[in-house]
Nucleic acid binder design. Structure first.
Lengths: 326, 326
DNA sequence: CGGCCAAATGACAGCGCAGTCAATTTGAAT
DNA sequence: ATTCAAATTGACTGCGCTGTCATTTGGCCG
């Protein structure tokens, strides 16, 4: 029973007889043997480490991390969460240091990193597989995972219209994000499909953050003929709308309907509870980790065609929407 | 110029002449040399890895992670965030696997893990240094970091009392957490110091979470003579109070003052903005990482007496508090 | 029963670094 | 200049595993 044979069993190599495999597994169980990760990394080509790169920490980050880490654990991998300050001058250095020091087997890119050319190139140069979450651009040379933002936005808009809303304000996310564009496109298409005019004075840009959402809401609610409903491109900005409405003494949702997007924790921490779209964050995370883990041993590159997974979203109807007052 | 000499320079060993050190450093810079982490781990006794163990992901988790990771990066360390499901049967196995596989140099324990005997023992048996964040119990054999919850709660209560509030409701956190007890003690002591009675029908337990905070708030606002102010032991529960108040049509903060604790993101994402206590999360995180990093090379155990750091909190006065109506 | 091929196993080296200890250089004292 | 201790440096080894390749085993055929 040589060390090598144990190694073979641990790595599930096919060239081991069933008899010895069983014996080894029993011994492993008995001794509670755990292979030393560092030695495996040093000797082998895999590091059993996956990077999770993000720009700014959002509310979904911990959820995503938890989901991906969960999947990683199942296969003996570990997740390294790393904040990538895109504007930092040492940005590339930082990334390549990480890659070289840690020998990551793959990287999961959260938006807006998923569309960042610099990171993309750095990863490609280092031939490190990556998986992109909710990219704007699906022509990258790595798989992507997301929901159909366009469709979700249409549904959400249809929900509003179905209840009788006609003047609907829209708060855009951060320019350049795929989600921003798709959600807006879904909104406008659904409006047009219902022969509803899009009043450009009712379109604001809130960059996905609460404070700017506040400014948008203040402008939106101050116009001559205010909207009866506001579609915010994420829950943080929807919360901002609600906060402003409360501040100026509006009665919600009677006087104003609000919808958000993401089903972030904040969605259920305010009154009225937000009607929103839930992204399957945990599933996306698990899938992302899985893609990398399964691709990792071979290093054969991604299968062709590249898997672009579109997961199902869920329309969550809560209390923040009602029919407009006649 | 042997490899060993380079190793000495990289590890800042003292027995290198200034001349060679300079030469080596220049070469390192020139070649952009990065020592292989895995090899260092395998060969040396350090792993350059610190664990951040948490139970349930809270809002401050990402901030804490960011702060600690920041400090780690400065010294070439990395942070592994791990969720410890305290109730899982494989809990100990999971932890010890981590420790043995990754050979963590140290572990940061977030509450309530900071008071968990099982983890504490496991770590001690593996002689892995740990740093506890906001423990209830300061008699552990590892350093702790926190703020003076008692004092902060007194200040917050004094703020309320100073504005004229006399009937003040209190929502407790999760039993067993140090923060829960200290904050409540601060509240009661300050009330007593002002000769104010503590009406036990105005004390509720919300376990630090929003949904239970909602239930507490509903009960609190339904009593015969409702409080004019509510002290929630954290911001999530304070948000719950505000949400309920909005729901039943109260005018805030005129009819009800609310204070929270932590200055979580939610504190500024609702109207009225929460008056609360800010914990220096980033500083705590940096300090925690630093303690482990500095202790790590020696493995001499902690200095005596054990450093129990009490960092400064900050009373953040915003809009959720006003004088009670006459 | 020998011969042969494929399957299964083991011997060995080396991944890149740090620990050990011996070899070398330096510098101060004689 | 010589001597000797201290300071500095380098050769060598091993950390625990995996890749390579040689060796052994087992099954099947003639």
């Amino acid at each position: 029973m040589s060390a090598k044979t144990v190694s073979r069993v641990v790595n599930a190599e096919p060239t081991v007889s069933e008899k010895t495999r069983a014996r080894v597994l029993r011994a492993i169980e008995l001794l509670d043997y755990k292979p030393n990760l560092n030695a495996r990394m040093l000797a082998g080509e895999r590091s059993y480490l996956i990077g999770l790169f993000y720009d700014k920490p959002g509310a979904y980050l911990t959820d995503f991390y938890a989901g991906a880490a969960d999947r990683c654990r199942e296969s003996g991998y570990h997740l390294m969460m790393e904040s990538c300050d895109r504007d930092s001058p040492q940005f590339t250095r930082q990334v390549s240091t990480l890659l070289r020091q840690m020998r990551l087997d793959g990287v999961i890119l959260l938006p807006p990193l998923s569309d960042d050319g610099l990171i993309g190139n750095t990863l490609r140069d280092a031939s490190i597989p990556s998986v992109r979450i909710a990219p704007r651009d699906h022509t990258h040379d790595s798989p992507s995972i997301g929901i159909d933002d366009y469709l979700a936005a249409r549904r959400l808009t249809a929900h509003l219209i179905g209840l009788g809303h006609q003047r609907i304000g829209f708060i855009l996310g951060k320019p350049g994000h795929g989600a921003t564009e798709e959600r807006y496109r879904g909104f406008t298409d659904e409006m047009r499909a219902n022969n509803l005019a899009i009043d450009t004075s009712l379109i604001e840009t809130g960059n996905f953050v609460f404070p700017e959402g506040v400014a948008c809401a203040e402008r939106l609610l101050k116009v001559e003929q205010p909207p009866t409903a506001i579609f915010a491109s994420n829950d943080d900005m929807a919360a901002a709308v609600i906060s402003v409405a409360h501040k100026i003494g509006m009665d919600l949702p009677t006087q104003l309907s609000v919808v958000g997007f993401d089903d972030a924790p904040i969605a259920t921490m305010i009154w009225p509870l937000l009607t929103t779209v839930r992204q399957p964050v945990a599933s996306m995370a698990r899938l992302a980790a899985e893609l990398i883990i399964e691709n990792s041993p071979r290093r054969l590159g991604w299968p062709s065609p590249l898997p672009h997974s579109t997961l199902d979203f869920e329309l969550i109807v809560r209390d923040s929407v009602t029919s407009p007052r006649p």
